[in-house]
């Protein structure tokens, strides 16, 4: 099978691309459903439970509702940009997901720029948000757009610096190598705890999730950049946000949580229970399957964290957000980088 993939790069690329598109698109509704259920539980409510068994069809109803809604473009919008903006949010998040190895050596494509591609593409999403805010011809939207651009640019720096620390451990930008390095030397979260925390915090900010959702904040900006969006255009923003969340979780898993690998003691458990011996030395169908399972489990756990944090922490004030970004995260990340570099150099000696 692996051979077949290698022999038919075009066909396999298409298949991978379709899967890449289909899988996150299918995850998002589920994610929305779980977000609603989890937030309900946190608030001692029941959550959606009317549509289908235990409300499982609620996402479907949501989608249908969104599709059925009237598509409104307010008077005075800059129509071209207004229509473009949701796509600009949605597409980069999808593309960034492409380079994440969801299983053992399993990614849609593996450019030699590696993770830098993901970060670069991912940061395009800021255009979508600020375009949306600009084109809506609404002061709240504009404020939301401005906030999001400032916020994302600020936190991108911290995000990248934190990511650098993980890359430096492996000495490469190839994510598969990063994962293998972690198999060999232990997860980066233990070796780079500061980097991991910084990456996590910055990824919250990058995805505009609470406590950093200042671009949307309903109470002040009535939805911010997407105030004036309805129907599928709004749904695209929504999808973009959730896919960005998945991408960020996947990156976090890959960079700091061992990616598709598992620590040896867990592998023994799998061996004991399922009678499957997994060794990540070579790519087989079995290891690939299990690597996908491990990867999905870790990503799901991180997604749960995203949701959990959202319904626990209050929103930051905007100046607090900027202070945290510029005065804490970036200096700490730089210091971390410097120490890491020094240690690496010293150890090489």
């Amino acid at each position: 099978m692996m051979e077949w993939f290698a022999e038919n790069p075009v066909l396999s690329g298409i298949i991978k691309a379709v899967v890449l598109f289909a899988v996150p698109m299918q995850i998002v509704p589920g994610l929305i459903y779980f977000e609603r259920r989890i937030c309900a539980w946190i608030q001692d409510r029941k959550g959606p439970n009317r549509v289908g068994p235990i409300g499982a069809l609620q996402p479907l109803a949501d989608v249908v509702k969104l599709l059925m809604k009237e598509d409104i473009a307010p008077k005075g919008v800059d129509r071209a940009i207004y229509v473009l903006a949701p796509a600009l949010v949605f597409i980069p998040s999808m593309l960034a997901f492409a380079i994440v190895p969801v299983g053992m050596d399993l990614q849609v494509f593996n450019p030699n720029s590696g993770v830098i591609f993901a970060i670069t593409i991912g940061s395009f999403a800021v255009y979508g948000l600020s375009f949306g805010g600009w084109a809506s011809n609404n002061k709240y939207s504009l404020l939301g757009g401005l906030r999001s651009s400032a916020q994302m640019i600020s936190y991108e720096a911290a995000l990248f610096l934190a990511l650098m620390s993980a890359l430096m451990m492996a000495g490469t930008v190839d994510l598969n190598v990063v994962v293998r390095d972690q198999i060999a030397h232990g997860w980066n979260i233990w070796r780079q705890p500061v980097g991991a925390v910084l990456f996590l915090v910055a990824s919250f900010a990058e995805t505009n999730r609470l406590p950093f959702d200042l671009a949307e904040c309903e109470s002040e900006l009535i939805g911010g950049y997407h105030t004036e969006y309805t129907s599928m255009k709004f749904a695209m923003f929504f999808l973009g946000e959730y896919i960005a969340m998945i991408t960020m979780s996947a990156l976090m898993v890959t960079l700091f949580l061992g990616g598709w690998s598992m620590p040896t003691f867990l592998l023994t458990i799998v061996h004991d229970w399922f009678g499957v011996a997994i060794s990540f030395d070579q790519v087989t169908l079995g290891t690939m399957f299990w690597s996908i399972v491990f990867f999905s489990a870790k990503t799901s756990a991180l997604l749960f964290l995203f949701i959990w944090v959202r319904w626990t922490l209050p929103r930051f004030r905007y100046d607090q957000l900027m202070r945290l970004g510029w005065k804490v995260m970036i200096p700490v990340a730089l210091a971390n980088l410097a120490i890491t570099a020094t240690v690496i150099v010293l150890m090489e000696d």
Partner: peptide, 18 residues
């Protein structure tokens, strides 16, 4: 805070009605 909210998730006690 996270532990507190986790406690509510685990508690499984609803104040709302269907």
């Amino acid at each position: 805070g996270l532990l507190h909210t986790l406690g509510h998730i685990v508690k499984w006690d609803h104040n709302t009605l269907n």
